[in-house]
Amino acid sequence: MSSPPKLLIPLHVSYIQKLGESKDDLSYHLTAHLRLNAVYWGLTALCIMGHKDALDREEMIDFVMSCWDEEAGGFGAHPKHDAHLLSTLSAIQILVIQDALDKLEISRVVKFILSLQQPSGVFAGDSFGEIDTRFSYCAVSALSLLGHLHGLDVEKTVSYIEKCRNFDGGFGNTIGAESHSGQVFVCVAALAILDRLDVIDDQMLGWWLAERQLPNGGLNGRPEKLEDVCYSFWVLSALSILKKVSWIDADKLSSFILSAQDLEGGGIADRPGDMVDVFHTLFGVAGLSILGYPGLVDLDPVYCMPAPVIEAKGLRKGWQSLERRVSQD
């Protein structure tokens, strides 16, 4: 087997820079409902590759603030779209990375987030009431970044997450649902923020997570499913919070992620040979950072943000990624 290509940082930086330039493209507009999330994915990927300034800071902050939904008191994914917890967390993450939280009426956002907690302890994504442990994570992470965790009913929040734990050690999106790597990330990271990792059976979950690695090095999201680059982050973040990243083969996974790069246009795809997008570009780069790939900035696996940003806020938890390797050339 030939050795995998290196991480083509300049090419990925220019791929992310060009994402906003395709406004005459239908597919660009068909993803408007994910725009704010996409800005967060792009910015975080740039930070991890050491190119935070590749996108204009003022323009980005203005765009974030243009997504504010005055009626609800949260952020929509795009100007005039309804507020939702998913986009509200992205907005807060961007403002924290850009050190621009002063733009925000924090007490209103906190009120919006807390209003979405249900009697069972889980969070709804918006006032229409879809519930999911993803939204519990969004609420916990956002409140923590805003310094307002004290307003949260921690016991109720943890109690719902605990009820989503399955016998295999993993977590599902609601009570009774099958374990899924993405849900494992949100539940484990929320518990880490709330200092309640005692809820986890770390041997069982560590086993389940380690078994996500397939012979080609990639990770899948559930037993007997296909590999996908985004699980590099969902699985690795949970493993690093459990301090068990070494339980999978880091070299094989790195090669898999690197082989999913588009060597001409930049960006990373779900698997080799597929179309790239900014979501998989972030989660590929994030995975490589946790695996100690040379030249990258540390990623905080709990918040999925640059580690220096989280450290500066005093929010770092006790996770462990692999030691950063020194480039051989």
Binding site: D24, D25, L26, H29, E264, A269, D270, G273, D274, M275
Partner: peptide
């Protein structure tokens, strides 16, 4: 984007696609 194969289009093909999509986009 999941499971969509990467295909290289020529500049002409991309322009033609854009033109076809123009009405839909508007």
């Amino acid at each position: 984007m999941h499971g969509v194969k990467r295909v290289r289009h020529t500049r002409e093909a991309l322009e033609a696609k854009k033109l076809r999509e123009q009405a839909k986009l508007t």
